[in-house]
């Protein structure tokens, strides 16, 4: 994740790399704050339709997870991070099958029991 800077770096290069890295963390943080404040604000204010609020929470939550993965875990589409990206996507596929299957089966079961 945090590969050490090359020892051959000059002071200026190291300073530039440092400011690039710190900008990355700050960008991620600002995006995360915005993506957190919007859904909290919507729920606090109220007055929006239930579907709109739930939809916004879900979409912004997923975007925020991607922001965290990119800016804090430093996993993106670059070649040296590809194995981690594939690992994560495959884990998410397994998780989706198990979680969606669980919810599907239990909601279906509940529907059948209510009908009795």
């Amino acid at each position: 994740m945090s590969s050490a800077p090359k020892t051959s770096m000059t002071k200026e290069e190291a300073a530039a790399a440092y400011s690039h890295d710190i900008k990355g963390y700050l960008t991620g943080f600002v995006l995360a704050v915005v993506l957190t404040v919007i859904p909290f604000g919507m729920v606090a204010m109220g007055g929006f339709g239930f579907g709109t609020v739930i939809g916004t929470i879900a979409v912004l939550g997923l975007i925020q997870m991607v922001v965290h993965v990119k800016y804090f875990l430093h996993v993106d589409f670059s070649a040296d991070q590809r194995e981690y990206l594939h690992l994560m996507l495959f884990s998410l596929l397994l998780l989706f099958i198990m979680a969606a299957g669980t919810i599907w089966i239990l909601v279906n079961l509940q529907g059948r029991m209510m009908g009795m």
């Binding site: 800077p5 790399a17 710190i22």
Partner: peptide
């Protein structure tokens, strides 16, 4: 928790540099 993730990032950078 969100702020702590940023401050851990600063710790990581302090190590890296």
């Amino acid at each position: 928790l969100l702020t702590s993730t940023l401050t851990f990032g600063f710790a990581s950078l302090a190590v890296k540099y």
